[in-house]
Amino acid sequence: MIFACDLDQTLIYSRRSMGPMEESELVPVEKYEGEDLSFMTRTAYARLRELSREIDFVPTTTRIYEQYERIHGLTGDIRIRYAIVSNGGRVLVDGRTDAQWDGMIRQAVRSGAASGEEAKALFDRLADASWVLKERYCDELFYAVVVNREEIPGGWMEELAGELARMGWNCSLQGRKVYLVPDPVSKGAAVRYVKELAGASFVFAAGDSLLDESMLRVADEAMAPGHGELFRNYAGKDERGIRFAGRSGILASEDILEAAANCRKEAGHTR
């Protein structure tokens, strides 16, 4: 069994995103420039540690490799053989880039989508420079653009999505970042690939955003927190097989890990 799980605002949380929580119940899992940035609850951390010994836990994140490496809490006690970073653009096996997947995904992008320059030019044409703060071209695959979210006009994301779709790209608004992603780069495609690598027969997946939806659709069981893009889009209702946690914020991670553990026990799934 594979447990493919998004990280930010699904499994790990910043102080801004976690909601009310006693400090004594938190485990720091990410540090940057001497500051603790992300946390898990003690309960969630203990459940993940136990679960990773029984099945393949696969961190699946839009973060690039260097940002993923900052999460020190996913080393040591947590067993990880496979990881997916760059929104599916890179697969790691024992911490190293899988060359076969790297070649496959870059060829798919070249042949199946407009260039990054064309997608960014479209964004620049539709956006107002006054609320665009900075941008990053990640792994030469997709863009992450930091914006003043409050200043984005109503309906603007829908307009952007419609225009990008004609170019073989999609978009997502998460926190203060707008992501522009070519269609071949997806968590779902990467999860299918890792499933084959691991020889697994079952996938439990969890995530909170539209960028996670592709992996939830390829999973045998799928779950989302009681917050985020998916929760807002589907009004918290079970939508085409996605189960929603009963809680939001950092406590949703406990619900997700409990559901993954119960799934393993009920079906008898192991590695």
Rank of each mutant, 00 (worst) to 15 (best):
E163Y: 04
A129G: 06
C138I: 15
E135V: 05
D128S: 00
E150S: 13
P153Q: 07
A161N: 01
L141G: 08
R125C: 05
R149C: 04
E151G: 03
E150C: 08
E135T: 03
V132C: 03
N148I: 11
A165G: 02
L160Y: 05
R136S: 12
R125Q: 13
K134I: 08
V147C: 13
L126I: 05
K134Q: 11
P153D: 06
N148R: 14
C138D: 12
Y143Q: 06
V146S: 14
R136I: 12
S130C: 12
R125L: 12
M157E: 01
L133H: 10
L141I: 02
R125E: 15
K134S: 13
L133C: 12
L160E: 00
E140R: 14
E151Y: 10
G162Q: 06
L141R: 06
V146I: 14
V147M: 11
V145Y: 04
G155Y: 05
C138V: 14
E135G: 09
R136K: 11
R166A: 15
E159I: 04
E158V: 01
G155D: 02
G162P: 08
D128V: 00
W156H: 06
G155C: 07
L141Q: 03
Y137H: 13
C138R: 11
D128M: 03
L160T: 07
D139P: 09
E140T: 08
A127Y: 02
K134T: 13
C138L: 12
R136M: 10
D128C: 03
P153M: 04
W131M: 11
V145G: 10
D128I: 00
E163H: 10
A161R: 11
I152T: 09
E150A: 15
S130K: 15
E158F: 02
R136P: 06
E140S: 14
E150F: 07
Y137G: 04
L160I: 07
E163D: 08
L133S: 10
L133G: 08
V145M: 02
I152H: 10
G154P: 07
V132P: 03
R149N: 05
M157N: 00
G154T: 06
V132S: 01
G155A: 06
A129L: 07
V145E: 00
Y143W: 15
L164S: 11
R125S: 11
N148V: 08
L141A: 01
V146L: 10
Y137F: 12
A161E: 13
W156Y: 08
V147K: 10
V132L: 00
V146M: 14
Y143C: 09
E135R: 08
